[in-house]
Design a binder for these strands. Structure first.
Length: 472
RNA sequence: CGCGGGGUAGAGGAGAGGUACCUCGGGGGGCCCAUAACCCCCAGACGUCGGUUCGAUUCCGACCCCCGCAACCA
């Protein structure tokens, strides 16, 4: 029994929810549900990251003000989480009042620690877009949208965070907490990044250029750069700084993030915490990306898989199943509509769904009343070990081994024959099969909660259900 | 010598110093409770070249190829 605070990385609302968000949400939710099952008290945080130039620009394109635009996306992401049956305890928005004041207080703390200073900042500016560009947005030093125009270098004065000061502290953190970043290769990567030396980073923008951000305390000319603001949500979501009791109850946090976020979550944010005199996160888990047909999903390639379409067609638990079992938890994985369909058919329709049907048909036909609600048998150590190591597919494999074993048992012990030869023995066997099916359902609870409910219900009512996973 | 990952049966994945595992697909058989599902059996693979070793696909080195990232991309 412990308190377990878990957070996803807040999606930036510049685009619709995609499969990568779904992966992270579902992984986080599986951990949260499993922990609750183990008796832990759990706080699962999700939400939306809403500030910055990109958002202001998108809003303008759609003829809205940024807040209206963000409101719409917040609703979209919330519905998205609901469609995936994410059992979140908090949906934070970085435009929430509480978050805004928390970010400002956080800034003041860092400033008080002497870690915020003003300096010249060089930006690369495309006059065609009227926007600042990052190196990775440029192709051959030019804006891909306006290749005929020269990128202008503009200078402006910004606030900086003294990241460089924290190199040693971060390396010490990585030494002391050997699983601070999971998996190991990401830990190596961040170590080598920090070892190579850190450059202070800019944390503000001139307000006249960009008003859609959190005002810098005591300086009306600047707003916070969105990174700084967004990261603070991990503490503001649990009441910092106003509700210390709540904060201490939950902190430190276990974070889930994509591999593109490694530096921000495992290094920059940790330095910011130290600067603000807070303790480090508990752990940072880094997942991979999902490609389709061997390539990044992109609109121009036309290989984008919309998770909501999958939910519509196959159901929430089927999507959760595929994301947790057939997508690597840490490496990039490939998924196409065809492979998704194959996994669905092979393991849900033919596997679990069919097993439930064959067991429950026998039970409904031959048992006069439902079996007694089975005792809670504890999950195996292997199950928990795999889960604690974020190896979701390994946990799922364990469950599917039980499914296959039950299928084998039915074939070999032939309850459908036995019950005709010796009704009593046959009924005993069928009751055992139903009991095992019930346990399988429980094992699935963190991953496929609705399926677990149906299995439980069908057994306790002794009534064969509609096809769980219809053939599509 | 920028950083990290990877090249295993037709496909996608796991693995380990000594019979190479799983899923899908292919071939054959069985069963009839089940969603033409289920069970059993069979065929088929470790990028290249060296080294260490009694023995490497697994360790070491070189090479070839693929994929991310390369800082303020939120």
């Amino acid at each position: 029994m412990k308190n377990f605070y878990l957070t996803t990385t807040l999606p930036y609302v510049n685009a619709a929810p995609h499969l990568g968000h779904a992966l992270e949400f579902v992984q986080a939710d599986a951990l949260a549900r499993a922990a609750r099952l183990a008796g832990d008290e759990v706080f699962l945080n999700v939400g939306t990251d809403e500030h910055g130039a990109k958002i202001a620009q998108k809003a303008e394109e759609e003829g809205k003000n940024p807040q209206e635009y963000a409101d719409e996306y917040a609703v979209r992401f919330k519905e998205f989480a609901d469609r995936l049956a994410i059992s979140y305890d908090s949906f934070i928005r970085t435009s929430d009042d509480g978050h805004v004041s928390a970010a400002q207080e956080f800034w003041r703390r860092c400033e008080a620690a002497g870690d915020i200073y003003k300096a010249e900042y060089e930006i690369k500016y495309c006059v065609g877009c009227e926007l600042e560009k990052t190196d990775s947005e440029l192709a051959n030093g030019r804006c891909p949208l306006h290749p005929s125009l020269e990128i202008e270098i503009r200078k402006e004065e910004n606030y900086y965070f003294r990241f460089s000061k924290y190199q040693e502290a971060l390396l010490t953190l990585y030494e002391n907490q050997k699983n601070f970043v999971v998996p190991e290769e990401r830990m190596r990567e961040i170590k080598s990044f920090v070892s190579a030396g850190l450059k202070d980073f800019s944390i503000s923008r001139r307000r006249e250029k960009l008003s859609w951000g959190i005002p810098v305390p005591d300086d009306p000319d600047h707003v916070m750069y969105v990174w700084f603001d967004a990261l603070v949500n991990y503490v503001s979501a649990i009441g910092w700084p106003t509700d210390q009791q709540r904060f201490t109850k939950w902190w430190p946090v276990t974070q889930l993030a994509g591999k593109d976020n490694l530096r921000q979550q495992a290094a920059m944010w940790q330095a910011m915490l130290l600067s603000a005199n807070l303790t480090f996160s508990r752990q940072v888990f880094i997942h991979g990306f999902i490609t389709s047909g061997g390539q990044k999903m992109s609109k121009s390639l036309g290989n984008v898989i919309d998770p909501l379409d999958l939910v519509e067609r196959y159901g929430t638990d089927a999507v959760r199943y595929v994301l947790l079992r057939h997508v690597s938890s840490t490496e990039d994985s490939d998924l196409t509509p065809d492979t998704f369909h194959d996994h669905y058919t092979a393991h849900l329709t033919n596997g679990l769904g069919n097993l439930v049907a064959r067991v429950m048909k026998l039970a409904e036909t031959h048992l006069e009343e439902p079996i007694a609600r089975p005792e809670m048998s504890p999950f195996s150590q292997e199950y928990w070990d795999a889960l604690n190591a974020f190896e979701f597919n390994r946990v799922m494999d364990l469950v599917w081994q039980r499914i296959q074993a039950l299928d084998e048992r039915i074939t070999h012990e032939e309850p459908f024959k036995l019950v005709k030869e010796d009704a009593e023995k046959g009924r005993t066997l069928i009751a055992e099969l139903a009991t095992e099916l019930y346990q399988i359902g429980r094992l699935l609870n963190p991953f496929m909660p609705a399926t677990n409910e149906i299995i439980k219900k069908t057994i306790l009512e002794n009534k064969k259900p509609e096809n769980l996973f219809p053939r599509l």
